[in-house]
């Protein structure tokens, strides 16, 4: 048994998992403020990456301008989505809003395909690919950078939900009608949460764009992100981080041993198993809130 190799698998898995957490945090931000799982978070991530590329490659601007600019633009894209697509649905059954986010996902994928085509482009952040050793473990630098970004966004989100605005957003996700009754702008709150989730999507898109290139497959990150968010509990930011690490390690270590037996492709199987088992055994996830039923 090669312990160093196992440790390497574990640490790299955890780092990859934290990159999934980035997608999951975007989902949680919206769920925590409007109780809707946003099925378009993967497509938003992809759009964020394309917008950065549009500035950095098509216009040739440096990344330190391109990324902040993309953050601003995507924030307003998020606000705009609420204004145009979701406002009229406020207070309607959640399933209608869910279908709307699915429609958005398809729309965004179609639009990006039409504008930027289907070929993969590389987004170069300038992170070195030289081997990086911690002890005897070989780690990926870009994954370490991504994990650090995930932790930073995690801390920022936790602090945000303790502010007055954050408390208001949590109130909205608890009860739309009661929020209206005390003068909380439900529409404004939902718009803000979409704006913030779109900002997270830029960060996610940039990191993942560097890892695997920018193309349509970025939108499939939704599945990993959703699995992590469900495992962590859809309304828990801490859950998104912890579940990301867990899923990442399970995927990396589990697939190493399983692939030898089934001959490859077990990664997705592990993700699917985690999602299905979570919903069956612990529907509110590791840290999600229970529905309160007083007896």
């Amino acid at each position: 048994m090669d312990w160093i190799f196992l440790a390497e698998l574990t640490v790299n898995g955890a780092l990859t998992g934290l990159l999934y957490s980035l997608v999951a945090i975007g989902l949680v931000l919206i769920y925590k403020s409007s109780a809707v799982p946003n099925l378009a978070q993967g497509a938003l991530t992809m759009l964020g990456a394309y917008v950065v590329l549009a500035f950095s490659h098509n216009l040739g601007w440096p990344l330190w301008i391109a990324i902040p600019l993309a953050v601003v633009i995507m924030f307003f894209v998020g606000i705009g989505i609420e204004r145009v697509a979701l406002r009229r649905l406020a207070g309607r059954p959640i399933v209608m809003i869910l279908m709307m986010t699915m429609g958005l996902d398809i729309f965004l994928r179609g639009t990006t395909l039409a504008i930027w085509g289907g070929s993969s482009r590389s987004l170069n952040l300038g992170v070195s690919y030289d081997p990086f050793f911690v002890g005897d473990m070989l780690l990926s630098r870009i994954h370490i950078v991504g994990a650090a970004v995930a932790i930073a966004i995690f801390i920022a989100s936790v602090l945000f939900f303790r502010t007055r605005m954050g408390i208001r957003l949590r109130a909205i996700s608890d009860d739309y009608l009661a929020s209206w009754s005390v003068g909380i702008s439900v529409e404004g709150g939902v718009a803000l949460s979409w704006g913030l989730a779109s900002i997270v999507a830029v960060a996610t898109g940039v990191i993942w764009g560097e890892v695997q290139g920018v193309d349509q497959s970025l939108s499939l990150l939704l599945l990993k992100g959703l699995t992590v968010a469900v495992l962590g509990g859809l309304d828990s930011i801490l859950g998104a981080i912890v579940a990301g690490i867990i899923l990442g390690i399970m995927e990396s270590v589990g697939s190493f041993y399983l692939d030898a037996i089934v001959g490859g492709g077990s990664r997705d199987l592990i993700v699917a198993a985690v999602l299905i088992l979570t919903v069956m055994i612990r529907p509110h996830g590791l840290f999600g809130r229970h529905d309160i039923e007083r007896i």
Binding site: I167, R170, D174, D175, L177, A178, S179, V182, R289
Partner: peptide
């Protein structure tokens, strides 16, 4: 509104903050 409808997952203190 009828039926109390407090923000169940918030503390009473946060309920007051939210309003």
């Amino acid at each position: 509104i009828e039926g109390r409808r407090v923000f169940e997952h918030l503390t009473p203190d946060e309920n007051l903050d939210a309003a």
